[in-house]
């Protein structure tokens, strides 16, 4: 009996031995910065099964929420750089430094894939007494502090978009904070707030159903999801220097991860993001697929950080100057 057992153990050892030689030899942990059901979560859970097929391993995904993603980022940063812990996140860490939320950002991580980018737009309650960006600016200036803008805290998309807008025009509005664009868009429909800068994907269904109206599309070109809406740069070309801009989703590993592991992961996720099903899913939500890796991804991250950090700094909502961290002005 005993010998049989030993034999089984030995067989197990032998059977696992060849697997040890090649990555991945065990389950990979995927740490999602945001909660279940959110857009980061949905994107990661939708792309990963396609990548798993190429990778030939299993990625166990977990949500580790809180601190605008800082907790997940710190956790992955504390693990071994062996490629067995992936950070699945959004754009937020790129602003941690200037927002006073710690001293990490994605420069401590190696991008595996920058999956997609969102397009911001500004929506308003149907009863709002303005129908486009020009009218809104005029109305707001005529009624200072009366128009209520939804926001999602410092560094969130609404704060950056508002910073961008106020770099060209004056907008004396009241900001009502919400803990995400979902609840804020709900409040918009109920009339608790009048205007909300949001990512297109979150607002598109409400717009299509006529429950809210688009004030401006904050991009350089019209979007296929909303072909009738002209981009903001048509009337306000001054915004061209910041655009295109938008929140993004990406997968990262800690710096120092062996090159072959990074290669393998990048290849797997590169294939996964190309999957037709995934592409149609993500474009249906109004996101633009990027599928960047390697140097391309790195330069995308740097540009994003430089534009956004200076934007929020110039708008006066940053806690520290980007200069302190060596972030160049765009």
């Amino acid at each position: 009996m005993k010998s049989k057992l030993l034999g089984a153990v030995a067989a197990l050892m032998v059977a696992t031995a060849p697997a040890l030689a090649e990555y991945p030899e065990k389950d990979i942990q995927g740490i999602i910065q945001w909660g279940a059901g959110g857009s980061t979560d949905t994107v990661m859970r939708a792309v990963t099964p396609h990548a798993e097929e190429v990778l030939g391993g299993k990625v166990v995904m977990q949500n580790m929420t809180g601190g605008v993603g800082a907790i997940a980022t710190k956790y992955v940063g504390a693990q071994d750089a062996d490629g067995y812990t992936l950070l699945m996140g959004a754009e937020n860490p790129q602003l941690y430094k200037v927002m006073g939320l710690g001293d990490t950002d994605y420069s401590d991580f190696t991008p595996i894939n920058i999956i997609a980018r969102g397009v911001p737009l500004i929506v308003a309650n149907n009863d709002a007494p303005f129908n486009n960006f020009k009218e809104m600016v005029e109305y707001v200036q005529a009624h200072p502090k009366e128009v209520k803008f939804g926001s999602t805290g410092p560094g969130g998309l609404p704060s950056v978009v508002t910073a961008m807008l106020t770099s060209e025009v004056e907008l004396p509005v009241t900001f009502v904070p919400y803990d995400g664009d979902g609840p804020a868009l709900t409040a918009l429909q109920g009339g608790a707030i009048d205007v909300m800068p949001a990512v297109l994907g979150a607002a598109i269904e409400g717009v299509k159903a006529g429950r809210m109206k688009v004030i401006a599309l904050v991009d350089v070109a019209a979007n296929p999801a909303l072909p009738d809406v002209a981009p903001i740069t048509v009337d306000y070309p001054g915004y061209e220097k910041y655009l295109p801009w938008g929140p993004f989703f990406g997968i990262f590993v800690k710096n120092g991860t062996p090159d072959d592991v990074v290669q393998k992961l990048s290849a797997a996720y590169g294939e996964g993001v190309k999957n037709a099903e995934f592409v149609s899913l993500i474009e249906g939500r109004g996101f633009t697929v990027l599928n960047l890796s390697g140097d391309e991804a790195r330069s995308f991250l740097n540009k994003w950080q430089s534009v956004t950090s200076w934007l929020v700094f110039d708008a006066g909502i940053a806690k520290a100057s980007p200069e302190e961290f060596g972030i160049p002005r765009p």
């Binding site: 279940a36 059901g37 949905t42 939708a46 429909q189 409400g206 299509k208």
Partner: peptide, 30 residues
């Protein structure tokens, strides 16, 4: 609110909305 407006009524319906997206639906007012 989930079925009529695409607004989750609680944490579970929020995840079910995510699942419907993945399966190619667009939960929302439409």
């Amino acid at each position: 609110p989930m079925l009529t407006l695409g607004i989750p009524g609680d944490a579970v319906t929020a995840i079910i909305i995510g699942a419907m997206f993945i399966h190619g639906l667009n939960p929302g007012p439409m």
